[in-house]
Design a protein around this nucleic acid. Sequence first.
DNA 1: TTTTTTGCAAATACTTTGCATAACG
DNA 2: CGTTATGCAAAGTATTTGCAAAAAA
Lengths: 159, 159
Amino acid sequence: MTTATLTSTKELQQRLDFFEQECRRRGLRVTEQRREIFKTVASSHSHPSAEDVFAVVREKMSNVSLDTVYRTLASLADMELILRVGTAYKERFDGDLRPHAHFICSDCGEVYDIFYNLDHMMLPLQEAFSCGDVRQINLQYKGLCKQCQEKRKSGTVSF
Amino acid sequence: MTTATLTSTKELQQRLDFFEQECRRRGLRVTEQRREIFKTVASSHSHPSAEDVFAVVREKMSNVSLDTVYRTLASLADMELILRVGTAYKERFDGDLRPHAHFICSDCGEVYDIFYNLDHMMLPLQEAFSCGDVRQINLQYKGLCKQCQEKRKSGTVSF
DNA sequence: TTTTTTGCAAATACTTTGCATAACG
DNA sequence: CGTTATGCAAAGTATTTGCAAAAAA
């Protein structure tokens, strides 16, 4: 299995610079909390939850609050500076067992089917099997659905 | 975009038969609630949430409870008769923006990185773009990690 | 100085659990 | 009849929100 190279100090600094640049570009203020929260996720290789991030950041900033961590993680994900492993929405179920992918709207959470031959998705399967017993392959395309694109254009939402 | 064929009555009946067969094989009782909940998800094309399923089932069985729906959906997913669109765990974040896939354990929720060239994942992208503006591709392999496999073997958990 | 962000506390959503009764096999 | 599943109510997690004070630009 390919091992991830640990992020170097130089690389991390570059990412921090880009983070600040992106904040400024979007008119978001570069606060100590945002910087620490971003640094924590950017340098972690363990896919931390909000609570995990909170625990780490708390060691440096004893007064940071959990809701700031939630708010910041959400905005960092919106800015595409970090990724969500899941979908940020309540669980949904699918009774269609035919192989297919999903488009998931990151604004409204709507799920659309994408039927397509997914045989080539099986290629990394051998890699995956080194982690455990693979029972299901889940291919998701995340982004903004047409309706939410329109809403952002016309409305006050300005992300 | 390829359109899903609506599940025919015959096909649905076959799936219901298989559902009963699977319940019996695992020593689970075939109750009216389980049958209705399975039928609802199996014949839906809208990726319903637990609440959605509850609302539909309630029309036929006015006294069904939401916790039964939750319990049944969980066991149907464990039996692999239906799929979870998400991961059934709290959200986790990833600071590594290099393209890679994830193995996610359906028992403990642990996430493992799978580094692999994902260029061929881009193929269904055109399909996905008909739904909206794709910002991220998420490839998940779900199953049991090695540790949880051991736990099931040795312990009392018998799914 | 003006506007955004934070921390606190409280509220909300979603999901799970204990227990007595009902229902399956 | 013995065991499993259900419904009810209550608890438990995860996440979000309103608001006054603090901090960035």
